[in-house]
Design a protein around this nucleic acid. Sequence first.
DNA 1: CAAAATCATTGACATTTATCAAGAGTCGTT
DNA 2: AACGACTCTTGATAAATGTCAATGATTTTG
Lengths: 189, 189
Amino acid sequence: MLEVLQEHIIKRLGKVPERFEEVAKAFEPLRLKRGTYLLKEGEVCKYVYFIVGGCLQVFVIDKNGSESIREFYTEEQWVTDIFGFKNQQPSDEYIKCVEPCKLLRIHYDAFQHFSAEVPAFAQIYQQILELSYSNTVYRVNTLTSLDALDRIKWLMENKPKLMTRLSSKLIASYLGISPETMTRLKGKL
Amino acid sequence: MLEVLQEHIIKRLGKVPERFEEVAKAFEPLRLKRGTYLLKEGEVCKYVYFIVGGCLQVFVIDKNGSESIREFYTEEQWVTDIFGFKNQQPSDEYIKCVEPCKLLRIHYDAFQHFSAEVPAFAQIYQQILELSYSNTVYRVNTLTSLDALDRIKWLMENKPKLMTRLSSKLIASYLGISPETMTRLKGKL
DNA sequence: CAAAATCATTGACATTTATCAAGAGTCGTT
DNA sequence: AACGACTCTTGATAAATGTCAATGATTTTG
């Protein structure tokens, strides 16, 4: 699985990173079944995960007990609870496998170490941060400025692969609407 | 105004940063009237702004022509359109003064230069990024998992100063509800 | 300081979206 | 292949929120 990570890094950095072997050793491969939790509310997130294959959902549980999905993550993306991870504090969020997943995880201690010691590592991290932040900003804007139908259209145009890959129920949760409304609005397209 | 910036940096870094004088020279002070735009949709954001005094709103305009506020920024915070700034691409967002503002701005070229050359600068930037990202993640979760009344309660508990400082209309836009609903729900508290 | 503009509030009503329930279909697991 | 669990769809209804309009209060600005 490390080849996938190396490819990803080369793509981001535009070159083979210095000290890759050394950093790569800190990543532990994982194969997980659909439905496995990587993190639950109240737990401290000790890892950053790189996705080699599969799909994960990050979500919170509302007062009625239903999942409200903040984001999906797929191949060649990085997942963690950033605030909880950085401060080693309990999380508000859950992270769960939507599909069987192949992951590489790096522990907090190693992450901190390489952030400080390996410039290429810090650089990649910053790129991921900027991209994640940009995406999340965009997501806030779609949630507040678009109605349900336009959010569906937006997703179809901007993340068509998610639409086909995931169940309607999950997509509905991601868009902040009920499954029934999702069904009905799809008929209006 | 540079003292405020210096204080801010000392607070974040826990020490007086190396080469502060040099970096400080790159910041240009601005005094702006309420209602002034720093950025409009379609423009390329050339600056990062540090707020010495006042309040700004970042927003998009929906298909009905009304403002949908993504975030407010006040004293000792940093504002920019991160994605557009980093890639020097046209923005989707507007940035506008809600109050008369005292700002310090740094140009893209200087920003890039110091990011690469001054570790303390890069470090502060990364801290701001992490914090901004965390906040935005939190905001997505409140928008999708809470109903209008609970979003109001959330804001009162977590950002009480904004509630008193800004008009109901602006708060309503930030919470994704109409001013009328805002009035009515406030009666239910 | 006064006119003009904007804002907050209220009522009546429309629209959107959620909820509950039931049946048909699909999928995953054994 | 068959069972069970989950998912999708549809209908009926309820709840939440938006829109429009009018009025008085507040704020801004010349």
